[in-house]
């Protein structure tokens, strides 16, 4: 049913730390590996050994350069479904194949009823849904719905494959609807933010901004501020000298 639930019991999602992500692609490959055999199986590839290899992946890691000059930095940017609270991708679906789960807020596609009209991918501003040319249906992040509730797994494995694979701990999984959960606390601490909040789809997944770099823009500004009193009288210059010596 493509009508959205009023509320969901939980808001399961990911928190992605843009500060510690190193762009190693482990989450993306681990996602592909798990999901081509899991709920979304198969995730087909086209022309895999030819000149134009491409295929359905549920997680993509971009690399961007942000800022100019000495304060510029590289930001690795993993991008997958944000499991929005009010996603347009679900309401545009003509068949009811796309739906948002009442129990945990996960947005899923039923591969047995999807007609492959691609309208949901047009409605998503995040480019999170990928059409599977081989399977004829739409594929998307399932938040590893077939891992997180799997009681045959050791508890530490009952998390999405991307989170399990991340070598730097840049990906966190939990209930973002619970303000006391570890992920909610992390978002509060680090100033986690939504992607394109202007659309009003209320993404559940949050991104943590890169921390200020040593010698970066922030510190330059700080030293400029510190230096200002030095241009004043002798007492100010003395205090500034003391401040520099002590700091």
């Amino acid at each position: 049913m493509t009508a959205l639930p009023e509320t969901t019991a939980k808001k399961l999602g990911l928190v992605i730390d843009l500060d510690t992500c190193v762009g190693c692609q482990a989450c993306a490959t681990s996602c592909k590996e798990w999901n081509t055999g899991g709920y979304s199986a198969p995730l087909t590839d086209q022309d895999p050994y030819g000149a134009d290899p491409h295929g359905a992946w549920l997680n993509r890691v971009h690399g961007f350069e942000v800022g100019d000059g000495p304060s510029s930095q590289t930001v690795h940017f993993p991008r997958s479904c944000l499991h929005c609270e009010t996603p347009a991708c679900v309401t545009v679906c003509p068949t009811g194949a796309s739906y948002k789960r009442v129990e945990d807020g996960i947005v899923l596609v039923n591969p047995d009823t999807c007609i492959g009209c691609k309208l949901c991918s047009w409605a998503c501003p995040y480019g999170a849904r990928e059409y599977d040319y081989g399977h004829g249906v739409m594929k998307k992040c399932t938040l590893c719905v077939d891992r997180i509730y799997n009681e045959t797994f050791a508890p530490e494995d009952r998390i999405p494959a991307c989170v399990r694979a991340c070598p730097t701990g840049a990906r966190h999984f939990g209930d973002l609807g619970d303000p006391d959960s570890a992920v909610s606390q992390l978002v509060a601490e680090r100033g986690g933010f939504d992607l394109l909040p202007e659309f009003g789809y209320k993404p559940v997944n949050k991104y943590l901004p890169p921390r200020q770099r040593r010698g970066g823009q922030g510190e330059e500004q700080a030293s400029t501020v510190d230096a200002t009193p030095a241009s004043g009288g002798a007492a100010e210059r003395l205090f500034a000298w003391v401040d520099r010596m002590l700091s």
């Binding site: 843009l18 762009g23 491409h54």
Partner: peptide
């Protein structure tokens, strides 16, 4: 990207070599 406060954004490393869907 939500990174406007850090300055201009330029693509550096594409996530894949060939165009995806």
């Amino acid at each position: 990207l939500g990174l406007g406060h850090l300055g201009k954004v330029r693509p550096l490393e594409p996530p894949h070599t060939q165009p995806n869907f």
